[in-house]
Design a binder for these strands. Structure first.
Length: 741
DNA sequence: TTAAGTTAAGTTTTT
DNA sequence: CTTAACTTAA
């Protein structure tokens, strides 16, 4: 079983006692190490599978780990606890949430629900959302929760800071509403579990006793709350094995605390540290490119990834005039690779920074009749029709979930509008009852008048359905909801293509519910809703049929493909505009660079980087310079190909130190000729400078042009000044002058 | 009072 | 380009 493993991997497997930090570079076989470690614990150390826990971030990773553990371990493997952080916490809370004053039959709020709730709160507290957006509040609250700061603590630390005080106020109200709706948001799941463990020694000890060997995957992405959770669980036996790669930490925006991995040895002084540095996945060229890029980051753990693999084809770089050209090329290239390169569609993946980029590819794939699958984007369960039907199920399941009730009260149209809704809400608030409870007593609400009669049938319907729970199967229940509300019928009547796809989605939901019923020994409504709440789309990648995969770089972590295309390699897109212009741009660009590293290291055999000079973003044409990450790859590993055959020849066979010059030369030939075509509104050449050029402003001094957006008769130019920071200005007024570097 | 029709604003990444 | 907020007609 262990004969194919290298020395370091073997060491990682056998180091079973005490804290262990495994620094596993990309493609170094960390999943293999983890799965074999589980097998080793059971077979060589006689540990009961019941005492082993493996924790990951995504359901997809958990599923994969589950499969591979099952294969290797065989009998008894099902007792090993393999899940995500969030799923783990839900299981804990379902059992013990009542010990910290919650109902164990809580619902879980997704981003949409949170936003809705926050909107209500801002309205009620009469907050001017022009100054403080709902989003800002939610972000602040989420960050606080990642750091285990509850609303009370937050408020005590907010003294003297107006904005923080406001946030504290909203935070407190938000928590109050969640509790009232008997709901947790995603961050609560972790934070409240920690609270449970801290408050209830009995519960904690129970789980400590159970999970004697804990393994954490993608450890670099843990936030403070998750770290604390793990620490609490492991603090009795101390057998904590974490696997991660600081170079692949890409979830800082979600609170990931990179110090967790950098300071692991500080938290656990007796920790064994094992480095896995041999890459089994990629060719040398790809790996060299990745190493070159990531070496521009400071503050990394020292490590040098190497491989025995052949050097392989050089990394390809291509620039196009427009984003559609880019898409067309990639799709054609995939077609070609499948036709004569001996690959199948499954071997190909297109990775991009933002979900919005997927559309162009999608259009192209449809035209070319190539099967494709887009991962992520709008989560299946976030779709209108699905959320509507789920809201019915939630209402039937948990009468306290106001959000769900309000969502469906007028879906389908029952003639109940905002005014009626507001009156019921007010009544519920005044009498301190749930929204649904107020609806049940609608006739008692004086202000409603005739509107009360419209509510009655809805209440009757929900009550009827409730009485049927447990008597009929869940899928029958759903069918009855669809039938009674006429949901599908209404869509059929609409007859549009969009309506058709909605119907298909609903059918898929019915299918999922049936699958759930078959797989579960004791299917319950709550159980299904919970499963649904924790599932992101990334998870349902199945490998039965052949298709090209499209996804964001974030979603791609942990995956690998023979042929990878990194699209949209442009400054302003990747690294994102947000990161470049941020106050601490340095740090944020480093995170983007890690993301680039993750992207590059997904490729096993062929890697193609592409970018476009001209791209539509939010309905506006934008001109970006090529990504700095491309420039960071030494020319010896890179083969640059350009739209014209001439330039292509010029760039072959360059020595590495010519790299910079070559790229400059290449940039110095902007697509002016193309862009000045009257078609695309680009009277561009007039400005005398282009994105990426160094310019001078008479007040702000020197700076680099980040972005140029044509608008009306003028251009909006964004410039990153060396001294003055980032400024947006109109070209007509700014009188920018190009200067030589 | 509701619902359709029109106009304005915002936009990274995700469990 | 999409989604949310406004206006106006029924």
């Amino acid at each position: 079983m262990y004969e194919n493993m290298n020395e370091m991997q073997m060491q990682a497997v056998c180091q079973t006692q005490g804290p262990v930090l495994i620094l596993a570079g990309a493609g170094s076989g960390k999943t293999r190490v983890l799965t074999h470690r589980a097998a080793y614990l059971i077979e060589e150390k006689g540990v009961s599978p019941y005492h082993i826990m493996a924790i990951t971030f995504t359901n997809k990773a958990a599923g994969e780990m589950r499969d591979r553990i099952d294969q290797i371990v065989g009998l008894g493997s099902e007792s090993i606890w393999v899940t995500t952080f969030h799923a783990t916490c839900v299981r804990f809370l379902r059992r013990f949430a009542d010990r910290i004053g919650y109902d164990t039959r809580f619902t879980i709020y997704d981003a949409d629900d949170q936003k809705q709730l926050m909107k209500d709160i801002c309205k009620r507290l009469s907050i001017d959302t022009k100054n403080f957006s709902e989003r800002m509040f939610l972000n602040a609250i989420s960050h606080a929760k990642d750091e285990l700061i509850d609303e009370v603590t937050y408020q005590t630390h907010a003294q003297g800071d107006f904005k923080k005080q406001k946030i504290g106020e909203v935070y407190a109200e938000y928590q109050k509403m969640l509790r009232k709706n008997n709901a947790f948001d995603f961050d609560d799941l972790i934070m409240k579990t920690v609270e449970l463990f801290r408050k209830d020694a009995e519960v904690l000890q129970g789980y400590q006793e159970r999970f004697r060997y804990i393994m954490v995957d993608e450890y670099q992405d843990t936030n403070t709350a998750q770290f604390t959770l793990i620490q609490l669980l492991a603090s009795k036996y101390g057998n904590l094995c974490v696997v991660g790669d600081d170079d692949q930490s890409i979830y800082k925006f979600r609170g990931a605390n990179i110090r967790n991995i950098l300071n692991f040895e500080h938290y656990f002084p007796d920790a064994a540290v094992i480095k896995l540095e041999q890459n089994y996945r990629s060719t040398q060229n790809i790996l060299n490119a990745a190493n070159a890029v990531i070496s521009n980051n400071v503050g990394r753990k020292a490590k040098s990834l190497w491989t025995d693999n052949p050097s392989g084809a050089p990394v390809e770089f291509r620039q196009f005039y427009t984003a559609s050209d880019e898409a067309a090329y990639i799709v054609e290239d995939i077609k070609e690779k499948v036709k004569s390169g001996g690959y199948v569609y499954q071997d190909c993946a297109i990775l991009y920074r933002t979900n919005a980029q997927s559309r162009l590819f999608e259009e192209r794939f449809i035209v070319s009749n190539i099967p494709y699958k887009i991962v992520g984007g709008i989560n299946f369960y976030a779709r209108k029709e699905i959320k509507d039907l789920l809201a019915y199920l939630k209402t039937i399941d948990n009468a306290k979930d106001d959000l769900a009730v309000r969502r469906i009260l007028n879906v389908p149209k029952r003639g109940i509008g905002a005014t009626t809704m507001a009156k019921v809400q007010e009544y519920a608030l005044d009498h301190d009852i749930s929204f649904y409870y107020a609806l049940r007593g609608a006739s008692e609400i004086p202000s409603l008048g005739r509107a009360a009669a419209k509510i009655q049938p809805f209440v009757t319907f929900i009550q009827t359905m409730r009485s049927k729970v447990g008597e009929i199967s869940l899928s029958d229940l759903l069918s009855e909801i669809i039938e009674s509300t006429g949901y599908i019928k209404e869509l059929e009547l609409e007859g549009s293509e969009e309506a058709q796809s909605r119907i298909e989605n609903i059918e898929e939901l019915q299918g999922k519910l049936r699958t759930y019923e078959q797989n579960e020994e004791q299917p319950t409504l709550s159980g299904f809703l919970e499963e649904v709440a924790l599932v992101a789309d990334v998870d349902k990648l199945d490998d039965k049929s052949d298709y090209v995969t499209l996804m964001t770089l974030h979603s791609a972590k942990g995956l690998e493909f023979p042929n990878v295309y990194l699209a949209g390699m442009e400054d302003g897109l990747f690294p994102s505009y947000m990161s470049i212009t941020s106050d601490n741009a340095k740090e944020e660009v480093e995170e983007e660079r890690r993301l680039a590293y993750v992207g590059i290291t997904r490729a096993k055999e062929n890697l193609t980087l592409t970018c476009a000079k001209q791209r539509m973003v939010h309905g506006k044409t934008q001109y970006n310079r090529l990504s700095r990450f491309v420039e960071e790859i030494p020319a010896e590993y890179l083969q640059s190909k350009f739209p014209s055959a001439q330039t292509q020849k010029e760039h072959k066979r360059q020595s590495p130190n010519l790299k910079q010059k070559a790229l400059e030369q290449f940039r110095a030939k902007p697509a002016v000729t193309v862009l000045s075509k009257p078609s695309s509104g680009g009277e561009k050449a007039d400005l005398g400078y282009d994105a990426g050029d160094l310019v001078e402003h008479r007040k702000f001094g020197k700076g680099t042009v980040v972005k140029i957006i044509p608008g009306g008769r003028d251009f909006e130019v964004t410039v990153q000044f060396e001294q003055a920071g980032v400024k947006k200005m109109f070209a007509g007024f700014a009188k920018l002058k190009r200067v030589q570097e």
